[in-house]
Structure formats: structure tokens, C-alpha cells
Amino acid sequence: MRRRLAGYLFILPYLFVFIPFVVLPLFIGMSLGFFQWEMLSPVEPRFVGLQQIRLAFNDPYFWNALKATSLFVLFCVPMTVILSLTIALGLHAIKQRQSIYRSIFVLPMMVNITVVGLLWRWMLNTDFGVFNGYLKYFGIQIPWTGEPGWAMLSIIMLTLWWGIGAPTIILLAGLKHIPKQYYEAAKVDGANSVRRFVSVTLPLLKPSLVFVLVTQLIASFQIFGQTFIVTKGGPNNSTRVLMHHIYETSFVQYRIGYGAAMSMLLFLVIVVITLIQYFLVKER
């Protein structure tokens, strides 16, 4: 019994910050979703139940934002996983100068979003930017932020560049952990390199891959800074993601209650997707 108590004592310091700064804000934030509270209205907040959830379902911009977010997640997450896996495999295969290369891929993660945003806005500028400046020599001009499809691609490129570091080192660490004997055994059995990758690397890397997939999904659904600074949601609202819509609703239009209701929906979407993923992975 005393032992148990001691165990909980170990958790206690964490609870001191967890309760006031995670549980309480979450509870308040969620309950705000049931109130119609417009900050700049002289009318007091009033309880409206699920009315604002219904409002969100009838709000074309909510659906548009959900669509933009899903599109981003759908393309960015697999691309992040594939690219980081490719880089990790490459880094793993070379023995010399590995730490230099590794640092290069982690480097962008350390630049803050204000600077990253400014840099990419400049590089992507259609008429006067760095990319099109070089592409001109090939006679190509791309409307990087001018067309919905290209704008989304630009945001994905930026995100890949900025965020590839963390998944790469996680996967690299996973690769380092696979015992060499497995490969040697596979070689003896006459498996070629593709075969070895499919039957040794992938299964043994699965936990790392799942971890990367889950954390990337959670993070991607909450994408905000990149689109907010670089494309400002345009063109034609094509990169106006959910967090952006929620931010504008709460902090520009001052509709706190409605913003909270939509955040709640976003939270639910993330939880459902994560659970689906969890069960899909568990089955095998």
C-alpha cells in the first residue's frame, strides 16, 4: 500500500501542471462549444446546446476547410513517411559522413516559422521569386501560389522541407536497431535486396513507422502556421485549413463559442482517425 502511494507521489508533480494547464483548459474549451459567446457582443453568453455543431455542419466554409485539411493530410502524411524512410535508408546505408548528412536534414526544423514563412513566400513568388527565376532558363513558369493545386503542393513541399528531420531520425534509429544477423540470414537464403527490404526491414521497422505515422497524422491535422503565413488560405480558399478557419472565427470574428465547437469537431476527427489506425495496426 505504501509502495502504491509512493508511486502516485512520483506522478504528483506532473499532475500539478497537468490539471491546471491541460485538463482544465480542455474542459473549459469544450464546454465553450455549447455556449453562444460572441466576445464583442453586449449580450451575455448563453447555453445553446448542440446548436453550434449543427451550424458547423451547415457552414460551407467549415466543409471547405475540412476538405483542404483532409487533402493536405492525405498527401503530406504518406509523402513524409515515404521520403523520411527513403532518407533514413540512404543514411543507414552509408557509413561515412553520416552525421553531417543527418544534421542537414534536421537543420530546417530549427528555423522558426516566421522566418520559414518569409523565405518560402519569397522563393515561391510567381513573378519575381527564386524558383521561377531559375525555371525561366527552362522556359517554364509555375503559379506556385496562384492556382489551388499548385498552392497545396507548395505548402506540402514547404512542410516536407521543414518537418522531415524528426521522422527521419526516428526511422534511422529504428533501422539501427535491426540486428545485422537477420540480413545475413536472409542473404544466405538467397533473398535479393528488394526481398530483404520487404521481409526483414519493413516488419522490423513497423513500430517506428507506426509511431511516425501516428504523430505525423496528429500534427498534420493541426497544420496552421505554414498556410497562415505563406498563402493566407488562398487562392479561392483552397489552403484555408481547419485551424485557420477556427483561428479566424475565434480571434478575428470573435465568435468564441463557435470556434470552440469547431475545435471540438477537429479533435473528434483526430481521435477517430487515430483509433482507426490503432486498430488497423493491431490486427496484424
Partner: peptide, 11 residues
Amino acid sequence: MVPAQVQLIPT
């Protein structure tokens, strides 16, 4: 999994 913006005003 809680979006950061949800917590901003309560915090």
C-alpha cells in the same frame, strides 16, 4: 491530440 488553439483562451 488536443489542438493547441482550443486551449489558448482557457489557458
